[in-house]
Design a protein around this nucleic acid. Sequence first.
DNA 1: CTGTGTGAAATGATTCACAGCG
DNA 2: CGCTGTGAATCATTTCACACAG
Lengths: 223, 223
Amino acid sequence: MSRGPYNLIMTKPLGAPLPTIRRLPVYVRILKERHEAGDIWISSDALGRRLDLGAIQVRKDLSSVGAEGKAKHGFPIAETIRVLTEFLGTDDYAEVFLIGAGPLGAAVLADDNVVRHGFKIVAVFDPDRDLSGAEVFGFKVFPLSKMTDLVRRTGVKIAVLAVGPSALREATDVIAATELEGVFDLTGLAPELPKRMVVVREDFGSHLAALAGELGGKRRAER
Amino acid sequence: MSRGPYNLIMTKPLGAPLPTIRRLPVYVRILKERHEAGDIWISSDALGRRLDLGAIQVRKDLSSVGAEGKAKHGFPIAETIRVLTEFLGTDDYAEVFLIGAGPLGAAVLADDNVVRHGFKIVAVFDPDRDLSGAEVFGFKVFPLSKMTDLVRRTGVKIAVLAVGPSALREATDVIAATELEGVFDLTGLAPELPKRMVVVREDFGSHLAALAGELGGKRRAER
DNA sequence: CTGTGTGAAATGATTCACAGCG
DNA sequence: CGCTGTGAATCATTTCACACAG
């Protein structure tokens, strides 16, 4: 999100529709899965079935970012992975900082999917001084104050924000002072961040609520 | 998601557009925030600004589920919370099971947002027999095999799936045997689940990749 | 005036229909 | 045939424009 409200002139095209961009990583994961299983080709239909999407949508998505398939065979798995990850720019953004070494931060560190998608947490920061120097899943925890400098020196462009409410202010202040380009905000508190940064927000609570809402809707519809 | 592909006849109306339903919980959170701060009224504009949404969208969303505002004042916070949570059915779905007591499961248990949105994890299950009986954040961990029976006895309708790849098969088999209505799948592995269940899937990895994709898109657009 | 409420218009995404290729 | 590729049609969501209420 963070698609600003009054976008009068010149809306920027991202090269593909946003929903497509959001599906891309999911394709990549399945493709890698098939690649590891030794498959060479996959049809849009097979790919779609795996994800409850129509074959046509898969083709539209893939073709909109320049991936090409071959009639009769489908899409060449290795090449398609290449095109997709290049489009996603995963390689340019592979190194990520993590802010927050609590249970949520630990879950991010332990998450295979983060690795599977080609990312690497390269440093962990925490506002709590008591945690500095501690180790979480083999990562040494740095004091938050070191981050500004490390962003500059390493050129890392994405941070995952996973702190609790008490440390939020301090964390956002530090982030605002950096040249970071994107923040993955897991706090669920929708903190204000500089407009120049792309922010993706997710939290367990609101997804649960949305799920409950869908269930409630289904129930409503059935009566 | 999990909107089936070939939905030939009779698409079910959920009472409101899906994107709206997904924004509702976010409104609720902000409203509760303001409520606790002692505010009585909030304007659609203030609410929208807090979330990078236009005021009009907020009004459409709220009015589409029956929340009413008053000219000059805005929306009455307490009443609006009531209407929204009733629509979302949070109360009917407040009790949730958690499958998986690893770092990810622990993060869910420790997450304030889950509570803030009105949910309560009422039991934790894990396929790993060694974990059974252990305690995570004050929750006793039950063997997965107990779940089928407990779903029946308690009437819980939602489970959060947070296991690793090795336990996935066992977990999905157990889920499929229950009368659960919704699954919040955090595995990132898109396991097959019965069509009758509403499934919401989220994983850190693909959101990171989508973020990288947006950043890449922005960069592409700037040249 | 400052705000809500809503039909109508605009935008955006998905799905269809069919041409084309191996 | 089996499968891709894509303009055109459909469908969904957002935004606009303006009526109306305190």
